[in-house]
């Protein structure tokens, strides 16, 4: 069992947990992920290593509550334990001094982009970061991102904080205004955001790296459920990725595959909410 040592609520639906898992912390690098299972009944879900502390033997995860498993995870507190915690999985980000780079983090993607931006900065890059979310309440780690970026652009879809824009807008301006200057772009966020970042950078031929979030089970190459179509054929995100050249990804296939279990996911959430209500009633009844 893997104890949760700390928990922070970053927004209504975004939570941070610090988990004791020395065997993972010893090895983890930016860009890698872990597979988590809450309890005996739980599914195995992939979450990116948002930060690690080798000495303390801990891994920090940040997740957005989008379905049953992440909602359940969001109810856990410091002192609770996770049944499964495997990693670090996938390849680490290839960090080099590329020159000027842009790191784009959308929504919960701000968490995994942070260690990448930090590592790029440490490697001597000039780091421009763009972070965005639907609204102010969903935004987090602005201060941390600022600390590792030479320039930081913040946007929200509704303009409740920073610039009212989608992340692709300032990105396009940068590409226009500083032709030939930007050596590489990293983008992590919802599939649809990564697709549009990819479409934005493609005409400028700027190499663009995305971290794909396909549905996974084992995370070790055993099931093939995470496969993505690239120009050269199907690849397994968990072992060949999770980072890929955005311009080679068949985005529509990726987005369709994320929807495969939508009906089941809806059922699971309904059942979960029902259970939570029941528990609430019981607790109140008992008090």
């Amino acid at each position: 069992m893997y104890p949760i040592l700390e928990k922070q609520v970053l927004s209504d639906v975004t939570k941070l947990i610090v988990v004791k898992a020395p065997q993972v912390a010893r090895k983890a690098k930016a860009g890698q992920f872990v597979i988590v299972r809450i309890d005996e009944y739980g599914e195995r879900i992939p979450l990116t290593v948002a930060d690690y502390d080798r000495e303390a033997g801990t891994i920090t995860l940040i997740f957005q509550e989008v379905g049953k498993s992440t909602m359940h995870l969001g109810t856990l507190e410091a002192g609770d334990e996770l049944a499964t915690f495997v990693g670090p999985l996938g390849h680490a980000t290839e960090i080099e001094n590329y020159g000027t780079v842009v790191c784009v983090g959308g929504g919960v993607g701000i968490a995994p982009i942070f260690p990448i931006a930090r590592a790029l900065k440490e490697a001597g890059n000039y780091v421009i970061s763009i972070i965005g979310a639907r609204n102010k309440d969903l935004l987090f780690w602005e201060d941390r991102m600022r600390a590792v970026s030479d320039e930081l652009i913040v946007c929200t879809d509704d303009g409740s904080h920073g610039r009212k824009a989608l992340v692709t807008e300032p990105l396009k301006e940068l590409l226009e205004e500083r032709p030939g200057e930007i050596a590489r772009v990293w983008a992590i966020g919802p599939g649809i955001m990564m697709k549009f970042v990819s479409l934005t950078t493609q005409p400028y031929k700027v190499p663009t790296i995305v971290s794909l979030n396909t549905i996974m089970i084992d995370g070790t190459g055993m099931c093939g459920g995470c496969r993505v179509l690239l120009e050269e054929g199907a690849r397994f995100v968990c072992v060949d990725g999770p980072e890929f050249d955005a311009h080679k990804v068949d985005w529509d296939n990726l987005l369709a595959r994320q929807q495969f279990y939508r009906e089941e996911e809806r059922l699971a959430v309904e059942r979960w909410e029902h259970e939570c209500r029941l528990e609430g009633v019981l607790r109140e009844g008992g008090a």
Partner: peptide
């Protein structure tokens, strides 16, 4: 492998009692 892992290891045949569909 994916199908059988969902069914056996993750007990998907007992979804939604078990979380894996």
């Amino acid at each position: 492998n994916e199908f059988l892992t969902r069914v056996n290891l993750m007990k998907g045949y007992r979804f939604p009692e078990y979380d894996t569909p």
